Lab assay of single mutants.
Amino acid sequence: KLATQLLVDLAEGCHTHHFNSLLDIIEKVMARSLSPPPELEERDVAAYSASLEDVKTAVLGLLVILQTKLYTLPASHATRVYEMLVSHIQLHYKHSYTLPIASSIRLQAFDFLLLLRADSLHRLGLPNKDGVVRFSPYCVCDYMEPERGSEKKTSGPLSPPTGPPGPAPAGPAVRLGSVPYSLLFRVLLQCLKQESDWKVLKLVLGRLPESLRYKVLIFTSPCSVDQLCSALCSMLSGPKTLERLRGAPEGFSRTDLHLAVVPVLTALISYHNYLDKTKQREMVYCLEQGLIHRCASQCVVALSICSVEMPDIIIKALPVLVVKLTHISATASMAVPLLEFLSTLARLPHLYRNFAAEQYASVFAISLPYTNPSKFNQYIVCLAHHVIAMWFIRCRLPFRKDFVPFITKGLRSNVLLSFDDTPEKDSFRARSTSLNERPKSLRIARPPKQGLNNSPPVKEFKESSAAEAFRCRSISVSEHVVRSRIQTSLTSASLGSADENSVAQADDSLKN
């Protein structure tokens, strides 16, 4: 292990032709098999893994070397290190390495390699500790012929580059190093199909959405987006994914797998022009299946994007999809995704031109529960009313008269009656009930004795009459309010007539 670390330190600071010789020695160290011998017992696995620490030291050392060589000349050094790393990870899946030390190597290698970024000039870069990406002036992410390196360097940008540029090249004859992302992409596909350690798979799935944002990485080298989509959909639809995973937390289920895969599918929607129609349908189907899991909100957001990006695919699945959405409970976490999906859909009339009455009724059935102001915040309630109004205007004229009683009944049950079921009123009724029952229970537990009763009969009569009056008032709060309003209006009217009579009498006395 110490000798391997010494080789790594020497290679990191070497800029001459001896660098390749040092890498040859490190490569021989990495070539050791990580498969346990067949006769190895389970209690000896930890000791055997400790004997392979030099392999881990070599791989982690290459990660440090690549981070240094990416910004220094010659660029061919970075290319050689990158290829060695990718080849080593491929061996893991070729020979099915399952030892804990092998999983640790893959975890740290993917953690580093999935941080690679590219700008519009195809320059590769890595983020620093502050998250700012520094791009290399010597390494690009696409394949290029050595003699055409300078031509590639002087080509115009596709868009303004992001991030601070690296140091300027030493001279005009500098050759750019090619670090094609397709090599890593193929290893990522192998990981999605064969990885057995949940920690490694979770890391890859968590980092892929951010990497897919940099389309330069994908399009400048032959990366098959179709295969990526197929691998992701197979993970969700195939039963073998959960069987092969180990190291998963207790209670791990298909729902947890959906939570990890759906963000990658959402990021892949922007590549729909490069996906086969069959793959697009598979993607939409997987998102529909996710509606029954805890990732339902993410799936609804993804389907909203699909309705804009892939209208030809979503239009066929939309009638059944809208009916499925009615089975989702009206909760605060689902309110905004569902209502925004319906609001977006209302502005795309070509998608729902074939809707029948059942689909329009489903839209109103989804939106009406969110009009309850005692359960949802003001934004959700306003958005629900907006969706109902928009869809009522957009639905066909023959359907409107049939939906009017349905909508008014839903609004009455969710908006008007919600004020009668407020917690304050319920607590008031509970308190009044307890007050009504309390005197009775006290009389049963403690019967009054005439000799020891010091309270006069008049006081008892007053208290009983007050309790009886309170019971009468607490029967119905709404009736009490109505009666008080009527009494107030009658009182004001009587006072007004009394004032008029007094004024008339005063005038008569003055005349006399």
Rank of each mutant, 00 (worst) to 15 (best):
N128M: 08
T68K: 07
G149W: 05
K69D: 00
G238V: 06
L184P: 03
L188H: 00
L115D: 10
K153R: 11
G131I: 02
K215D: 02
S104M: 11
R213C: 05
P100D: 08
S87W: 10
G163Q: 13
L70K: 02
D130P: 03
L73D: 08
S230V: 07
A118H: 03
L184R: 01
Y82W: 06
P157Y: 11
A50R: 08
P164A: 11
V200D: 01
L236P: 02
L217R: 02
A50G: 09
L205V: 02
D142T: 09
D197G: 00
L91T: 13
N128C: 09
Y97M: 02
L236I: 07
V225K: 01
S224H: 08
I105F: 01
A50I: 07
L192A: 01
L183N: 10
L62A: 07
H88S: 01
L208G: 00
T68I: 08
V132S: 14
Y143F: 11
V140F: 08
H95F: 10
F135W: 06
C229K: 01
S159C: 13
V204C: 04
T57K: 04
A118R: 02
V204G: 00
K240N: 14
S49C: 08
Q90G: 07
S196C: 09
T154A: 13
T72Q: 14
G206H: 11
E83M: 11
F219R: 08
Y138M: 04
D226L: 02
S51H: 09
G206M: 13
K193G: 10
G177Y: 07
K152Y: 12
S230P: 01
L85P: 00
R186D: 14
T162I: 14
K129H: 10
M144C: 09
F135G: 02
L85I: 14
Q227S: 08
G125I: 02
L236N: 01
Q227Y: 05
L212T: 01
L52D: 01
I101G: 02
R244C: 04
Q90C: 11
D197C: 05
S103Y: 03
V64P: 14
P165E: 13
Y138I: 07
G131Y: 03
L236M: 10
Y181L: 04
E145W: 07
V55R: 01
E195Y: 00
E250M: 10
M235A: 02
T72G: 06
S230A: 12
V132K: 14
R106Q: 00
K193W: 13
L228T: 01
K240E: 11
D226Q: 05
S182W: 04
S196P: 06
F185L: 04
M235P: 01
K56H: 08
D130Q: 13
A75P: 11
E243R: 08
V216W: 04
K240M: 08
M84F: 02
V81S: 06
T220Q: 04
L201W: 01
L208K: 00
L60H: 14
G125C: 04
S178E: 05
V55Y: 01
G166A: 12
S150I: 13
P222H: 06
E195H: 00
I105G: 00
T98C: 09
H95E: 08
L184S: 05
Y97R: 01
I105W: 00
L228G: 00
L228H: 00
Q227L: 08
K240W: 09
K153P: 12
K202R: 10
S237F: 07
E243Y: 08
V81E: 00
T72C: 14
